[in-house]
């Protein structure tokens, strides 16, 4: 790990913190909040690669755990990890890793379709797989019930998948020399 990697990791962790300042958009009908912040985890994986992407998410989460109010809505501290949605926070790091790994693996075949598929897999399948398991344990309901309860949030994340795909392709096109992945 060289200096450049450390700087990229740190700057993307800061970027995730800034994304938390964008006002959340509330879904019509379901009332589920959509924040740009969880898109930050997908982006970190897609632009920094598996290792650096996951580490930048971990760095961001450690700062949240230490008591900085960096999560959207000014939340932070240990409590957010132990609460029912803690699995999703840890899941961000895993999903960044998976997205980074797949982007790297298929880097010769990247187009709108394949990037959507990769980011949807990492950002929804992997993330909700972990997050819902956590909810199920914390709240003592079955895995299936947790999955059903999370559907309104998945709609928001599906929108984010498309947004992040657009961003990833736009950044790769405009600034290819700055990419780690």
């Amino acid at each position: 790990m060289n200096t450049r990697d450390i700087v990229y990791i740190a700057l993307f962790a800061s970027l995730m913190a800034i994304l938390g300042l964008f006002p959340p958009f509330t879904m019509p009908f379901t009332g589920a909040p959509i924040t740009v912040q969880s898109a930050g985890a997908m982006l970190a994986g897609a632009l920094l690669g598996a290792r650096c992407g996951a580490l930048s998410v971990v760095l961001f989460l450690v700062l949240v755990a230490l008591g900085l109010p960096l999560l959207a809505g000014g939340q932070g501290g240990f409590g957010v990890f132990l609460g029912p949605t803690g699995g999703f926070l840890l899941g961000w790091a895993v999903s960044a890793f998976v997205i980074g790994y797949l982007i790297d693996k298929f880097q010769d075949y990247l187009n709108g379709l394949s990037v959507v598929a990769i980011i949807a897999f990492g950002g929804i399948v992997v993330l909700y797989g972990l997050g819902n398991a956590w909810v199920a344990v914390a709240v003592d309901i079955s895995y299936w019930q947790a999955t059903v309860a999370s559907v309104p949030f998945m709609i928001g994340d599906a929108l984010k998948v498309f947004a992040v795909t657009g961003l990833t392709l736009a950044v790769r096109r405009t600034y290819p020399e700055g990419l780690r992945a």
């Binding site: 800034i18 740009v36 736009a170 405009t174």
Partner: peptide
Amino acid sequence: MLALTVPLIIRTLKMAD
């Protein structure tokens, strides 16, 4: 959203270098 975030990310990447 794209017009707001693409320049932000590219400027962050440039700053990292």
